[in-house]
């Protein structure tokens, strides 16, 4: 992050993991104050657990509200997943069964979050390695219904769509056709890894590599359907030189520019 404290690298905005900045003070907060002077901020949470049957945690919401008040992010986002059960936090974004019960639960949690923050949030589709027998809705129908019931926006992770589709056998085009395009406020791209072959073939969402070619193709298709959208390249493990990361950003920007009719208001971070 120190590269960005000086304001030198070209990026439209900086996305942070909200929970990393829940501290009362200290160097991380101070550095974010510096970054804030040069770039807009987006707060991307990983710990709220919007899918939890036990509901979202009031203290966590308060800490998020404090962060939002302090840094006034342009966007606040979280995941369609759960990570808290019986007050134990599992540090992963676990997928939900797409049932009416889960939809009611997530909608309540999203309502409560948006009310506490006083603003809309974006909800991101997860990557997954399995599906549930209990599911009665597709993921895109679930997200559509969630957006309709709560007014939340969607954060479309194109890599996650591709990874989940390959692992669980659904059609990525049907996914893009199925989601309400107007609700999509941001797009994520990331790298994944491939393990095994044949029946053992599994794509793992690592955020540790360049964006794969089929994901670029799906991104292009998404932009054609949705129009330009602010796009973020996620890279959390095996972080490369900043130049590699910025190069990925330039590729995404070219895709956006090619679908922008007038001036491109959407930018890559």
């Amino acid at each position: 992050m120190s590269d960005f404290a000086s304001g030198t690298p070209s990026a439209a905005w900086i996305e942070i993991h909200s929970e990393n900045f829940f501290a009362a003070g200290g160097p991380r907060i101070a550095q974010l104050e510096q970054v804030r002077e040069h770039y807009a901020i987006s707060c991307h949470g990983v710990g709220l657990s919007l899918g939890s049957a036990q509901g979202v945690d009031a203290d966590h919401l308060s800490a998020l509200r404090t962060l939002v008040d302090r840094f006034e992010p342009g966007l606040v986002s979280e995941h369609l997943s759960f990570s808290v059960v019986d007050d134990i936090y599992v540090n992963d974004l676990l997928p939900l069964p797409y049932t009416e019960e889960a939809l009611v639960t997530v909608a309540q949690n999203v309502d409560q979050t948006q009310e506490r923050l006083g603003q809309q949030i974006l909800v991101e589709n997860p990557s997954s390695y399995l599906t549930f027998v209990d599911s009665v809705l597709t993921e895109w129908d679930f997200l559509t219904a969630l957006s309709q019931r709560t007014g939340c926006g969607l954060l479309l992770d194109v890599n996650n769509i591709y990874v989940s589709a390959e692992n669980n056998g659904f059609d990525t085009t049907a996914y893009l056709d199925g989601i309400p395009g107007d609700a999509v406020g941001e797009i994520h791209l990331a790298g994944h890894s491939l393990e095994g072959d044949g029946e053992d073939r599994l794509l793992i969402d690592t955020h540790g590599d360049t964006v794969a070619d089929p994901v670029w193709s799906l991104y292009k298709l998404a932009l054609e359907k949705l129009g330009p959208r602010p796009t973020l390249i996620e890279w959390d493990t095996d972080i490369p030189d900043l130049e590699v990361l910025l190069g990925e950003g330039e590729t995404a920007q070219r895709h956006i520019d090619s679908v922008s009719s007038s001036e491109g208001s959407s930018r890559v971070a």
Binding site: F82, V85, V90, T99, Y129, L130, V133, S135
Partner: peptide, 30 residues
Amino acid sequence: LHDLQKSFADVALTNSVEALLPHVATPRGA
């Protein structure tokens, strides 16, 4: 939903998979 989530959390933390398996649609082999 809560029971399924508890079973999934047990997988994530301790790799005890038995309680979750009946809920999973993915083929047993994989």
